[in-house]
Simulated scan of single mutants.
Amino acid sequence: MSDLSNAAVALRMISGKLSRRLRESAPPADLTWSQVSVLGHLVRNGGMTITELAKAEGVRSQSMGATVASLSGAGMVKAESVPGDGRKTRYVPTASCLALIDENRAMRDDWLLQVMEQTFSAEERQTLLAAIPLLQRIADQ
C-alpha cells in the first residue's frame, strides 16, 4: 500500500472519530440524530418540502413526514406555503431551532478549541492551520 493510500485510510478513520467526538461534546438535547440532520438541511438550504427533505436524507416521504411532524410538535419547525404554489408546504426552522443549533455549534467549537489549545504546541497549531485549506479542498470534492 502506498503512503498516499495509507494517508487516505488514516484520514477517513480520523474524520469519523472526530465527528463522533464532536457529537459527544454537544448532545442534541431531546432530539434524535435524524431530527438533527433534518434541521441541518433546513438551516443550510432554507425551507424545504417533505419530498425534498426525504430525498436529501434518502428516506421515504412517509418516514420524513413523521420526522417533520415530531419536529413541528417540538417547536423546531413551522409550515408555510410555498411561494407561487399554495398547494405545497415547506418547512422552515423556528427561532427556537436556530438558537438551539447556534448553542450546539458553540459547544462543539468550544470543545474543539479547548482540545487544540491543550494538546498542540504553537508549532503544531501552525501546521494545523496550514492544513485546513487542503482538508477543505478534499471536503469540497
Rank of each mutant, 00 (worst) to 15 (best):
A26C: 04
T67F: 06
L53Y: 03
A139M: 13
I101Y: 06
V9P: 00
N6K: 15
R87K: 13
W33Y: 15
L18N: 04
D30C: 02
V68I: 13
T94W: 06
K78L: 11
S15H: 09
L42N: 01
A122Q: 13
A8K: 09
A139C: 13
Q118E: 14
A139D: 05
D109V: 14
K88P: 00
G65V: 00
D85P: 00
L134A: 14
V9I: 13
K17Y: 10
V68E: 01
M48P: 01
A66V: 06
P27G: 08
Q136R: 15
L100H: 06
R23Q: 12
L134G: 14
S72M: 07
T89S: 10
V68S: 01
A29W: 13
K88R: 15
K55E: 15
A99G: 08
M48K: 08
R105Q: 07
G84D: 07
R87V: 04
Q118P: 05
A130W: 15
I50E: 02
L100Y: 10
S34H: 07
I101T: 03
Y91A: 03
T51L: 10
A79C: 07
N104G: 08
L4G: 00
V68R: 04
K55N: 11
Q126G: 12
A106G: 02
A54Y: 02
L31V: 06
S37R: 11
V115R: 11
A10W: 12
E57M: 13
M48G: 03
R108Q: 14
T127M: 15
A79H: 02
A74H: 01
H41P: 00
M76C: 05
G58K: 06
A56E: 10
R105K: 10
V92L: 09
T127V: 14
P83Y: 05
S72T: 03
L42M: 00
H41F: 12
S61L: 00
N45C: 06
